[in-house]
């Protein structure tokens, strides 16, 4: 039990003390998470919307592929990105391997299918007849799309949160393509692995507490937003 208390005390001390190394790790973690989630939204949200709201040839195959991509282990994605960015790989000349950009690319490939899959499910839950109703009142396709996203917004926010969460907690892919270089590509998860390997469980656990605090804070924010939305929809003003 003492080790846990010690870890929490260490975590607080680290954060209060403002260790430059820790802040660098947190900064890189957020940088990779935000960039890869943003690209995940750009790639995944429109695809998810299309899969959830339209019927087109090959839709079932696309849904199956997306669901499969959601389940691919991050380490496999890391391996593939590593092979592509390695010197012998097709994009080796860009020199991106073991950089934050490489980590963002790998994490984007993890977040995009999650955002696409969950957005698709959220959008598909909006009844087709509701869109037809909007059309019958004069809505264009674009108006319909906005209305659908508005109706499904709690689900879409959850999809983005899930994508962000997967990126923040991921370790396999960033380890492979980032290399866990101190001061450059080290993020919270890879730092935890590093400290645990060195036997510094207190520091590893402290980093874990910080990671959990970030995740908890994010989930708290999402939950608050969803509850506030539901409360309003159910008519707090009625």
């Amino acid at each position: 039990m003492a080790v846990f208390i010690e870890a929490i005390v260490t975590a607080v001390r680290l954060m209060v003390g403002g260790s430059p190394e820790l802040w660098n790790i947190i900064g890189v973690t957020f940088q990779v998470a935000i960039v890869s989630t943003a690209f995940g939204i750009v790639l995944g949200a429109p695809m998810g919307f299309a899969m959830g709201a339209s019927r087109f040839r090959g839709r079932s195959v696309l849904i199956a592929l997306t669901n499969t991509a959601m389940a691919v282990p991050p380490v496999v994605i890391g391996l593939i990105v590593m092979m592509i960015l390695s010197r012998q790989g097709p994009l080796g000349s860009l020199g991106l391997l073991y950089t934050v950009d490489a980590m963002s690319i790998a994490q984007t490939l993890i977040s995009a299918p999650i955002i696409a899959g969950l957005t698709s499910a959220a959008v598909a839950s909006v009844p087709y007849k509701l869109r037809l109703q909007a059309r019958s009142l004069g809505a264009s396709r674009v108006h319909e799309a906005f209305l659908t996203l508005r109706e499904a917004r709690l689900g879409v926010v959850a999809a983005v949160a899930a994508g962000f969460g997967a990126v923040v907690r991921g370790v396999g892919a960033v380890m492979m393509v980032g290399g866990n270089i101190e001061g450059q590509t080290r993020v919270l998860t890879t730092a935890i692995v590093q400290e645990a390997r060195r036997g510094d469980f207190g520091l590893a656990l402290a980093l874990g507490v910080i990671l959990m605090a970030i995740t908890f804070g994010l989930n708290g924010l999402i939950t608050w937003y969803q509850h506030a939305g539901e409360r309003w929809e159910r008519g707090a003003s009625a």
Partner: peptide, 13 residues
């Protein structure tokens, strides 16, 4: 120039 109402009211949030 048209407008419809259906069996279910399909009110928006």
């Amino acid at each position: 120039q048209m407008a419809a109402a259906f069996q279910s009211s399909y009110l928006f949030k």
